[in-house]
Amino acid sequence: MSLMLKMAKPLLSAVLQIAVLLMGLSWILHTGAQAMNYQWQWQRVPDYLFFFEDGRWYSAELIDGLLVTLKLTLISGIATLILALCTALLRLSDSKVGRFLSFIYIEVIRNTPLLVQIYLLYFVFGPYLGIDRFSTAVLALALFQGAYTAEVIRSGLLAVDKGQFEACRTLGLSRVNAYRYIILPQVIKKTLPSLTNEAISLVKNTSIVSVMAIFDLTTEGRNIVSDTAMPFEIWFTVAAIYLLITLSLSGLAAWLEQRTRKGH
């Protein structure tokens, strides 16, 4: 019983702090709206999430934009992991050319803004390569996030004991099987919190591709605001949706980390 109380106290404290923060934020918004003579229209927000027509429910603009954001995140995330793993392996390889190219890629990407990279890919390289806007967005996000994720994976590879590599060679495992069954599971376990941060950053960075007229969640929110003049309600709703996605990723990562600690 005492153990349950000890566990409940931090949770209760966190809930109270969040409640106080929300109450303070609500008071600030209410006061600011009164000073601006702004009329809240929260009752109209559900119309931009779902609508009912001909006996069926349909997704509205914000949900359609959310689906585009999730699709963009998923495809970019897979491409990011592949690119990051290849880059990290090149950084640790015996090839001088491979180390040099991976170093240049990481330094160039990490030291230039994502928005500039998107413009270059969209207006310069995209038309030359003949790729559409969505593919350009995936490429831009994967290149940008891959440079950061590569360093995370490289640190995880360096943290694996060298004896593990020697044991794989002693057992006669091929290089691919050694990484697949022995090395990479340890790397993921060691770098899971950092990889989660990169995934969350990827979700947030998808909002920047709205400059390419991709109808993601941010673009749909901006279009609705321009049509309805409801900036507060729409942008708070968009922010809440992004927050829900990132909190879900954090919760999933925490669950996976707990399972790895238990040896699953």
Rank of each mutant, 00 (worst) to 15 (best):
L3V: 14
L192C: 12
C168L: 12
L72P: 06
L21A: 15
F123A: 12
S250K: 06
L184P: 00
A88L: 01
A229G: 09
G156I: 07
A199T: 02
L29E: 09
S76Q: 12
E53H: 11
R261S: 05
V108K: 08
V187Q: 10
L29H: 09
I188Q: 09
G98W: 02
F50A: 08
L22V: 15
F215R: 08
I208H: 06
L70R: 04
V15C: 08
I109L: 10
A14Q: 03
Y48R: 05
G163D: 04
S59H: 11
K162W: 06
G77M: 01
L74A: 13
Q43H: 05
S76I: 10
Q164D: 04
V45Y: 04
C168Y: 04
E198K: 09
G163W: 05
Q186A: 15
T69K: 15
Y48M: 06
L252A: 14
M1N: 11
A178F: 08
V225I: 15
I18E: 05
L247Y: 10
T228Q: 13
K9T: 13
I224C: 12
A84G: 00
I214L: 15
V160D: 04
V138E: 08
V152H: 01
T206Q: 02
I241N: 05
T136I: 11
L158F: 01
V45E: 05
L184R: 14
R175M: 11
S226G: 11
L114I: 13
I18L: 14
P185H: 10
S201T: 07
T260D: 03
S250H: 03
L217F: 10
I214S: 13
R222N: 14
